[in-house]
Design a protein around this nucleic acid. Structure first.
Ligand SMILES: [Mn+2]
Ligand SMILES: [Mn+2]
Ligand SMILES: [Zn+2]
Ligand SMILES: [Zn+2]
Lengths: 144, 144
DNA sequence: AACCAGTTTAGAACAATTCAAAAGAGATTC
DNA sequence: GAATCTCTTTTGAATTGTTCTAAACTGGTT
């Protein structure tokens, strides 16, 4: 589902519950609420802290520990990707397709670069006994 | 200086002091000692903690705070590069030329990929008012 | 309704890093 | 070479992001 139709409120709730269940996770209040926030809009990049605040503002009471647990569970279930751009802060990405990022060092913002855009070639073979897990490209940008 | 001759002990000390001074930093005991450890061998990737231990083993008494300070000062002076591969731990690289890395997630090891090897093309223009600072490629590998 | 396994929570614990204030040491001047 | 000035180092506390623990809770089942 590359281009998905905008869903109505109720429809979104159901979709969300199904998504959590399909991931093999019990659809609890907090998981459904967090999935609701995460998957409601276009692709997004969140930090645990940020999602926790967002939940609070949306009137959803969830502990920070649960936000961390949920982000990791969603990641393990393949619903999210983790993006490493900053030693000191973990980002989670709702865009799980192959793609790359601009990273605005100044304010910590992540911007998607569609997967077909950048091409990486001549990646050498890894040492014996090792296999490539994934190739990450981060384009660090700053004010011109 | 791509391929440098191996230096004798004393020669290395002098070179080291000069390097620190050339970077615009006062050649203090601890900065010279740390530079000595860092730039003595081939290119290396260190963590503050690791360098601190290495110094201790070499009989050099330096505080961890100083190791952090020094690594950052050397980085700012262009003697080191910081490599981001793990949210939670900062790596510093004595190879300041353009190159890429294999990252062995299992044990946190970094392996250089020479700069001419991988080619990255079609990097899109950054948003208005922004400029590319640098493009990082990390090839995450794991046991096959 | 009772029950159980899985989940959430608050708060303590941790790891990596930074900060603050006082003591120490290069560089410069006499 | 002593006085002096500024930059640096040190120690330990403080911060930040994240994980752990043990007790309370809840979704799903009987
Ligand atoms: Mn953050
Ligand atoms: Mn480390
Ligand atoms: Zn993304
Ligand atoms: Zn390197």
């Amino acid at each position: 589902m590359s281009a998905m139709r905008k869903k109505s409120g109720k429809e979104h709730m159901e979709t969300t519950g199904a998504k959590v269940r399909a991931a093999g996770l019990r659809p609890t209040r907090q998981r459904i609420a967090l999935a609701g926030l995460l998957f409601r809009n276009e692709d997004r990049h969140v930090t645990a802290e940020a999602l926790h605040e967002e939940a609070a503002k949306a009137g959803v009471r969830v502990s920070l520990a649960t936000v961390y647990n949920t982000l990791h569970q969603f990641t393990q279930a393949g619903l999210l990707n983790e993006v490493v751009v900053d030693s000191g802060c973990a980002y989670f990405d709702t865009n799980i397709g192959e793609h790359q990022h601009f990273y605005v060092e100044e304010n910590g913002e992540l911007i998607d670069i569609p997967g077909e855009t950048i091409s990486v070639s001549n990646v050498p073979a890894p040492p014996k006994g090792m296999a490539v897990d994934r190739v990450d490209v981060v384009v660090r940008i700053k004010r011109a």
